[in-house]
Amino acid sequence: MNIRFLRTFCAVADKGSLAAAARALGLANASVAEQIRALERSLGASLTIRRGQTVTLTEAGQAVLGSARAIVAQADELAQIAQAGALRGRLRVGAISTELTALLPGTLRQLAACHPEIDLKVVPGTSMGLLAMIETGDIDCALMVRAPFALPKSLSWQAVRLEPLILAVPAAMREDSVAAAIKGAPFIRMDRNAWTGQIVTRYLASRQILVRELFELDAPETIVALVSEGLGVSLLPDWGITPPVGRDLRIIPTEDIRYSREIGLLGRRGPASSLIDAFWRILYDEAAR
């Protein structure tokens, strides 16, 4: 039985269409269709049903999907074992925007020096979006905010660092009290639906601080730019905040560790686990520096 055909079948099941599976695998639509037909001939059963642009699995397809996934995973693991312990292969890493500039540059430099055989691809996104990409198999792991809910056991979480909650204020503002500074200026809020925004909302509620909201957006670097322009104040995790060139701002600590943002590496357990672990170790060391 051809492992490549099983891998294609799993991709079709995950993506729900031949075209989407073809894009994910880097194949032509016709090649994907032919591989599925070849697999069906070898098994003597119809595995898929096409309905317009979408594809659903037959009962036989549903029955063999779990075993197909296991065989593909074992084949991937064998390929790594055959390298006699050398860390090599493809690793697809997602990252939220703040960590793309704060942690990744030094991490990638060290990774290239220590593990040059790892072929790494970086994908930007939000924490919620990156979690969805891990679940669909589009990436292997993600540097992101810890989810505010329990995750399935098929995923692993490795903490990297805590980012304390601070209040960013214009450089000219002389207030040193978080509550007084918020009450005295327009408030630029992190999107309350984002996981970081939920931390901000909990902090404000715990202090019973009412805000005069000016903007709400899920773009922390843009918020920093707006604060440095003097438009308002904002509660943010301190990922190593720096204002745009030629601008300035002040940082007032909240001094409450309960509202720190935990950043870590979320990964899928499986063939890429050894690569994910190696990447995490370098990330952790970079955060400690």
Rank of each mutant, 00 (worst) to 15 (best):
A84V: 14
M128Y: 08
F187T: 09
D285E: 14
A84Q: 15
A79Q: 14
D191E: 11
W195C: 01
A45C: 02
L87T: 00
F187N: 00
D138T: 07
L283H: 07
I36K: 04
W195S: 04
L87V: 01
F149V: 13
C141K: 01
A168E: 06
G232P: 08
L108F: 11
A95D: 00
E216L: 13
L91C: 01
G246A: 03
G267Y: 12
G16E: 01
N29E: 13
L217Q: 10
V169I: 15
R189Y: 04
P186V: 04
S46R: 15
E117C: 03
L43S: 03
I118V: 11
I223L: 05
V72L: 10
V233G: 04
L167C: 08
L57Y: 05
L130P: 04
A225N: 04
Q74T: 14
V227Y: 10
R51K: 10
V178H: 03
I188A: 02
D140Y: 00
L130D: 01
L104E: 06
W195K: 02
V93Q: 00
R192E: 12
E221R: 15
L18S: 07
I118Y: 02
G16N: 05
E255V: 01
L103H: 02
L162C: 13
E213R: 11
L231P: 02
L231T: 01
A185P: 04
T54M: 05
C114G: 05
A180Q: 12
P116I: 08
R7T: 07
M173K: 10
V145E: 15
V64Y: 11
P105C: 06
I49P: 00
F215C: 09
P271W: 12
Q53P: 12
A33E: 12
A132C: 09
L236P: 10
A24I: 10
T107F: 11
L162E: 08
G137A: 05
A70P: 05
I252C: 00
P186S: 03
S154K: 11
V64P: 05
L155R: 10
I36S: 03
R90H: 11
G246R: 03
A45W: 01
L43M: 09
K15D: 09
L204E: 09
D256F: 10
F279Y: 14
V160C: 05
V178S: 11
I223S: 00
S156L: 13
L249W: 05
S127Y: 07
A278L: 11
G94F: 07
E175Q: 15
S234F: 05
F5R: 00
Q80F: 15
R69V: 12
A185E: 05
L57M: 10
K153I: 13
L120I: 11
R7Q: 14
I118D: 03
T254Y: 01
R50I: 13
L39C: 01
A287F: 06
G232M: 02
K121M: 13
A79Y: 10
A60Y: 08
A159K: 15
I282F: 06
Q80A: 15
N2L: 08
L143Y: 03
T48I: 12
